[in-house]
Design a protein around this nucleic acid. Structure first.
Lengths: 227, 227
DNA sequence: CCACTTAGTGTGAAACATCAACTAAGATAG
DNA sequence: CTATCTTAGTTGATGTTTCACACTAAGTGG
């Protein structure tokens, strides 16, 4: 087996990020306006080339792009899927490894729409995107929606401490339907993925609510059954 | 944004396949013995470089490798995950897009262990593999096991027409536990993914069994609930 | 101290899982 | 021709889980 030495026998390889955060209206995705050809002026997912010299592995490349584009250091990042074909980039056969990142609303505000060419858009009603980024975004949304059904992944869209009502609201906004309160709390309790923060309560002009946090900050727990 | 022109700024990109079939003993995986360095003499997953000139897209590259290595044309193929880092291949920063393929036992017999350097191994007890192929195989097994719980994916390990008892047996062998006959049949019926082949029966020295086929040959249906 | 709001729990009917028995339909042996 | 064996496919009885909804708890503000 010989190595493909010519650069035209190696595809162009990049990392693209679908960065989600929860806005008032629903799920939002971070898009950038392209400054250079191809697709100059179009909205696109944040992305960048893999730097074999600088990136230890694929996820490191994804986190580097995330840091460069949003300034956020270490939220939840998960590989989505790879997209590669002859037509997606007019410059030649190209390969994109797509990642999904979840930010809490406060992280999303800290950085994000600070420049004219970076903006949050409704995930379900985004403008037409460059390359095949529409397909990547659709795949990311499908992945997120399906994982919401049976995992604690949506907790990463909240700050470190949250109430169970807030968590339920996140599930409901992503799924687009209401969940039963007692069943939801039973699922979360059975999964054993969150723990009460002792003494910490969310106070408002009504009964205070217990604050919870994820037991393992980066991990995602799975339910026995669908929500 | 400029293209990374130097070939050392583009990673080496290949496609690796985890090809599963069902043997008497359980799930089997197709491995090849490497003839050339690196890892000459080691067992490895079948794989090959992406050929930007010949492969329309990633899945086409995976199907080409499958065809070249096993002679099988069009079974179930699904992208698993991409693996990329500086250390997995001693020749440099390399990227592998891993695919899972499912073959029926008859297809597996037709081609497969025809050459000395290609052999079926028990998926759960494979020899040490070259590169990071052990990790890829583990990820493929995990994906398969989890999908078995809530989808009709195992049907692709059977020939086009099969009885419900045969299908249940496939689930049981992959899951390693027995399933209730009436509950299993209800799930399959509710999923609406299979249809009876009119008049076709599997005959033996006992009551004949109705033959079924998947409604959409390539698609995988999902259950409302876990098996 | 009463009204209001959200937090968190309890409850009964319906759905489901589980286990096991039952009937069905062929082959085969005597 | 009939009894028996084997697997196909169905039915039912029982305990558990789910689901919708109502209820109690605990704070604020008037």
């Amino acid at each position: 087996m010989t190595l493909p030495d010519d650069s035209d026998r190696r595809p162009i390889a990049s990392v693209d990020l679908v960065i989600f955060a929860l806005a008032e209206a629903g799920l939002a995705v971070l898009l950038m306006r392209r400054g250079a050809a191809p697709f100059a002026g179009s909205w696109a997912l944040p992305g960048g080339w893999i730097h074999p010299g600088a990136d230890a592995d694929l996820e490191a490349a994804a986190r580097r792009v995330l840091r460069e584009k949003t300034g956020v250091e270490a939220p939840y990042v998960e590989q989505l899927q790879s997209f590669g074909n002859a037509g997606r980039d007019p410059r030649g056969w190209s390969l994109s490894i797509a990642y999904v990142a979840l930010l809490s609303a406060e992280e999303a505000l800290r950085r994000g729409a600070n420049a004219a060419d970076v903006a949050w858009h409704p995930a379900a009603a985004s403008p037409p995107l460059a390359f095949d980024h529409d397909a990547i975004l659709r795949a990311a949304l499908a992945r997120l929606r399906s994982k919401v059904e049976y995992s604690t992944l949506p907790a990463h869209l909240l700050p470190a401490a949250f109430t169970l009502s807030e968590l339920q609201s996140v599930y409901e906004r992503i799924l687009g339907r209401n969940l039963d309160k007692s069943a939801f709390r039973k699922r979360i309790a059975d999964a054993g993925c969150v723990e009460a923060v002792p003494g910490a309560m969310r106070r408002a002009s009504h009964r205070p609510a217990q604050l919870y946090r994820l037991k393992q900050a980066r991990a995602t727990a799975f339910f026995d059954r669908i929500l």
